[in-house]
């Protein structure tokens, strides 16, 4: 690490884009580039086949899957703010059974590097779901969603207790088949990121996904109550980028495993900033709603941008301490 950190000064002569190496390895899984789609922002990876090839992405992180299908929360579910979105979708998803039956075979056929986002209601459920997944092809890893603010049970409750983060991660790692990677997605809310990241690392995570949405609220002034029935909702998009950068910085200084930066990424500059803050890869969420091919564009722009800066590998951008 220290060697990589010292190189990559701003004065490097430009390179040819073909000299740039975008590959990133997470827990023994090699990915061709460090740009993924974030959970909840690109469905199950199969929704835009008429526009772009999902196999060109570093990875696709699926909508979070639960054991049983979920209907999600009542309307309103989404509000647009000048600086981002507030959402309260409530983990609506098809459930694990339908996912492995209907989605995984197609993901395998299209050679998508799928990271399956998982949420459990009980501590053991995460490992049980991995057990079920291990009978099927079509995925390269899992991301434990220990950070959803939009469900009454699980989610944030698990994700704010470092002991639970560690034990859930450990159980998941114990049943994870060889050759698959284990990401743990953490919340920026309530608990220091360093504490949570260390807990996940101690439990055997291969990488930290950082961050899930920030808890937020919108008020209906006329009605004198919150807009969302649950009160709180998840804040995402450009407005959370500074928060995400700070959390990525904190996490990457606390652990030795890779950190995957998430939060408000929309441009190639944003991607580079996350690398400087200590991320090894990034996920694009909210920005995909306006442009579903945005992550694909970022991959192309990334090679060109790094070459122009004379940077051979994203890791060289990381700031010194």
């Amino acid at each position: 690490m220290s060697e990589a950190r010292s190189s990559g000064s701003a004065s490097n002569p430009p390179l040819d884009p073909s000299q740039v190496d975008l590959r990133v390895t997470i827990g023994g899984v090699e990915l061709p580039n460090p740009v993924f789609t974030a959970s909840g922002a690109w469905g199950y990876g199969l929704e835009y086949l008429d526009l772009v090839d999902p196999a060109r992405l570093g990875a696709v992180v699926t909508k979070t899957i639960t054991v049983l299908p979920r209907k999600g929360n009542p309307q309103p579910r989404l509000r647009e703010l000048p600086t981002g979105l507030l959402n309260s979708i409530g983990l609506e998803n098809v459930g694990l059974g339908a996912f492995v039956r209907d989605k995984l075979p197609r993901l395998a056929r299209h050679e998508v590097r799928t990271v399956v986002s998982l949420a459990g209601r009980r501590e053991e459920e995460f490992a049980e779901m991995i057990g079920e997944l291990s009978h099927h092809e079509g995925w390269v890893g899992v991301e434990l969603n220990l950070s959803c603010p939009n469900v009454a049970e699980g989610g944030l409750d698990f994700g704010t207790d470092p002991r639970l983060v560690e034990s859930i991660t450990r159980r998941a790692r114990a049943v994870l088949p060889d050759g698959k990677c284990l990401l743990v997605k953490l919340t920026p809310n309530n608990v220091p990121m360093a504490t949570l990241a260390r807990a996940a690392e101690a439990g055997g995570a291969h990488a930290i996904s950082c961050i899930n949405t920030v808890v937020g609220m919108e008020i209906d002034l006329d009605a004198r109550r919150p807009v969302f029935p649950r009160g709180i909702a998840g804040y995402s998009g450009v407005g959370i980028k500074p928060i995400a950068l700070a959390k990525v910085w904190e996490a990457s200084h606390a652990v030795d495993i890779p950190v995957v930066g998430i939060g408000g990424i929309a441009t190639v500059r944003d991607v580079l900033e996350f690398f400087v803050a200590g991320a090894s890869a990034v996920q694009v969420g909210t920005a995909l709603f306006a442009r579903p091919d945005r992550a694909h564009r970022l991959i192309e722009e990334l090679a060109a941008e790094l070459a122009a800066r004379g940077v051979r590998r994203p890791a060289e951008l990381r700031a010194g301490d």
């Binding site: 909840g40 922002a41 690109w42 469905g43 929704e47 835009y48 909508k63 299908p69 209907k71 999600g72 309307q75 309103p76 579910r77 989404l78 509000r79 647009e80 979105l85 959402n87 979708i89 609506e92 995909l288 709603f289 579903p292």
Partner: peptide
């Protein structure tokens, strides 16, 4: 009409209950 973000069935922000109310 419903509030939309993606227009493509992805974000699940524009859902309404299906007949019977068990699915969206």
């Amino acid at each position: 009409e419903e509030q939309m973000a993606c227009g493509a069935g992805v974000c699940r922000s524009c859902t309404i209950p299906a007949a019977g109310g068990r699915t969206m």
